[in-house]
């Protein structure tokens, strides 16, 4: 069975100085890497999605342009939404595995060593 491990109830006083950790260059790097990927990507896919929605709603003639047989531009752009969703998903996973996970694991390890009584479960406490 998996070890039960979860954050303590919010509201308990934290004896660890998290503000200091927030200023830690390694943590700042992690936050920068995370945000520099997810924010632009979120803006991109939302703009692309709403461009598509607006075209499908207001530019129906344009979307009805036949491309190949009975397949029109609207269908191709709709399927392109599927393709970009899958592509962004895979891109994020690759990025997170390479650029986020190792550095997050380092910081986690460091914090666990600093304050084991807070970050690791006492055996038997929750079982």
């Amino acid at each position: 069975m998996a070890t039960e491990s979860s954050p303590p109830e919010a509201g308990t006083a934290a004896p660890v100085d998290f503000i200091a950790y927030q200023q830690n260059p390694q943590f700042k790097e992690l936050r920068k890497r995370h945000r520099s990927f997810v924010f632009p990507m979120a803006v991109f896919f939302l703009l692309w999605y709403f461009l598509y929605v607006l075209l499908a709603s207001y530019a129906t003639d344009f979307m009805s342009t036949p491309v190949w047989g009975n397949i029109n531009l609207g269908l191709i752009l709709g399927l392109a939404q599927f393709v970009t969703t899958f592509a962004i998903t895979m891109g994020y996973v690759t990025y997170a595995n390479r650029k986020l996970d190792p550095i997050a694991a380092d910081i986690r390890h460091e914090l666990e060593v600093t304050a084991p009584e807070i970050f690791t479960e006492q055996p038997g406490a929750k079982k």
Partner: peptide, 8 residues
């Protein structure tokens, strides 16, 4: 970081 939320 997931500290405290994951198995040590």
């Amino acid at each position: 970081t997931g500290v405290g939320a994951e198995k040590a």
